[in-house]
Design a binder for these strands. Structure first.
Lengths: 220, 220
DNA sequence: TACAATAGTTAGAGTACTCTAACAAATAAA
DNA sequence: TTTATTTGTTAGAGTACTCTAACTATTGTA
């Protein structure tokens, strides 16, 4: 049985690992920053997780999940996203509120609760941020997505997920009327600062920064 | 902000305190047994809770909740019973399964979650075991209840709650077809062992032990 | 009222997780 | 290729919660 702390460590590794390409490995500094602890603390903890055969790790090397560690981490992500979906769909939480509460709910230990919840939500494939929800066996529909900033003038796309889940960004999206499924057309790319001029659904064209367009996942 | 451990300590005190009459105070041995820790451990913890002004306590004296401690404890019981209701009504958990999971869910910190959940459940007054759910302000409908063993032959009653929430007892009730709201009529009291002969709804009369009849709350 | 039984406390120690400070390895730059 | 910078490790210590063992106070009984 993993402690909440241990669960958070392997979850962080799954998240950072899946962002980078290839073997999905991460360094101590990046991990500790993401977890909000000092590198020394993270070193100790990953040593312990290595003993438990959840991570692969050698002194001064990159850290990656073992098969078992990856499954455990996926089951936490599964719970997190199912709870987010519940909070959003059933309890009327807003987009930006669900994450924080789901961070707590994801650590509840009850296999029955998870499967009942999934059934109650009618087996959702995506959470409110557009991220795919892993199934009980760890499978996950791959999301074919690109960042908005990769589009060219004239391209049209559908918003499928957010890359940045910070409250500031989510609130800004809300204000702009952007949700999962929203249609966006790129009118023009400003060479000076790489900002984009675009139309959101039927609204008037507006300009968004490169930071914005790199934080939104879309599908052509 | 209280830790999960601290929450469990004041919850135990509320529970034991409200079982006994008068000033609702409890001893260290009883509390530590209920919490599954050694008396030495409980002594330390209640000292700490005294510093936080959540309990009244002097060396070698009984322990009781302060006004603030009582409010905190009630809010945990509120969460516990709302979650039990959710698990039972919405997710199809059985009577005996809800408690264990609610023990975990009651520690989730989110005032919004609690009020949204209450609203989603349509402001329930009782949990699946028949116990009243405290309102946000700490108020609770008083349950006019007595134990089945206090009835006399010829009396008829309605089951309103269970006193013992152990899985063994709940499963036995299920087998007997006893639920909240079930009607029971006492036919005869056996002087030898104080067991009762009774009819449950329209079933054939059957005999139940004194242990059984002292574990069930009813209303005449 | 004295003493045995019960109830509660203190001291010392262990585990899990965290930190700071000092150091060592790996990597990038001159 | 030597050095500076970045990255990661070790040692020592602190907090929260738990234990055992030894002790003290309170209560009930003879």
């Amino acid at each position: 049985m993993l402690s909440i702390t241990e669960e958070n460590y392997i979850k962080a590794l799954l998240k950072i690992g899946s962002q980078s390409e290839e073997k999905a490995a991460a360094g101590i500094n990046e991990l500790s920053a993401h977890l909000g602890v000092k590198p020394a603390t993270a070193t100790d903890m990953f040593k312990k997780l290595k003993e438990k055969k959840l991570v692969d790790y050698k002194k001064y090397g990159k850290i990656s999940l073992t098969e078992e560690g990856r499954n455990k981490a996926l089951s936490i992500v599964r719970k997190h996203r199912l709870w987010e979906t519940f909070l959003f769909q059933k309890l009327g939480f807003t987009w930006d509120e669900v994450h924080e509460v789901a961070e707590q709910l994801e650590h509840i230990k009850s296999p029955k609760l998870v499967s009942k919840l999934e059934e109650y939500l009618d087996f959702p494939e995506f959470d409110p941020h557009g991220d795919p929800i892993p199934k009980a066996n760890g499978e996950m529909v791959p999301l074919d997505k690109m960042v908005l900033s990769d589009l060219k003038p004239g391209d049209t796309c559908i918003v499928v997920a957010v890359k940045d889940t910070s409250i500031l960004f989510l609130k800004y999206l809300e204000k702009l009327g952007v949700n999962i499924g929203t249609q966006i057309k790129v009118i023009e790319k400003v060479p000076f600062d790489s900002s984009l001029l675009l139309t959101i659904e039927d609204q008037e064209p507006r300009n968004v920064s490169i930071k914005f367009s790199e934080s939104l996942f879309v599908r052509k």
